[in-house]
Amino acid sequence: MSSPESSHRWIRLIEPACTSCMICARECPSWCISIDSHTEPVAGLPPAARDRTRNVLDRFAIDWSLCMYCGICVEECPYDALEWVGDLTQPRSSSEALVEEMVEKPSADSV
């Protein structure tokens, strides 16, 4: 656990693995994770099947001004969608700018 890759410097979202289950946001003792998501119908179901929906992640943000790098979110995620990264969090000019948006482009087409 001493290599830079596994050191406690930065937490990254692996977006495809995230199911918007909210577990990390609820377990975070610093309340630094914000998640927005919406549901949309699952396409391509057999004709007789009943409608099903899935969660789509719209926003995942970590506020580095609140985060204490405890790693509870990384530990708790049941889908391994959060991981430690060796890079440092970058200095910012304001506390607002320390809110790191981790979902690159909100899926505007699906709303």
């Binding site: 199911t19 309340w31 927005d36 919406h38 549901t39 926003r59």
Partner: peptide
Amino acid sequence: ARTGMNWPGAKEPGEGG
């Protein structure tokens, strides 16, 4: 102090805003 704050975990999966 936390009783008056918005808790990010209060949202359900699939909920925004």
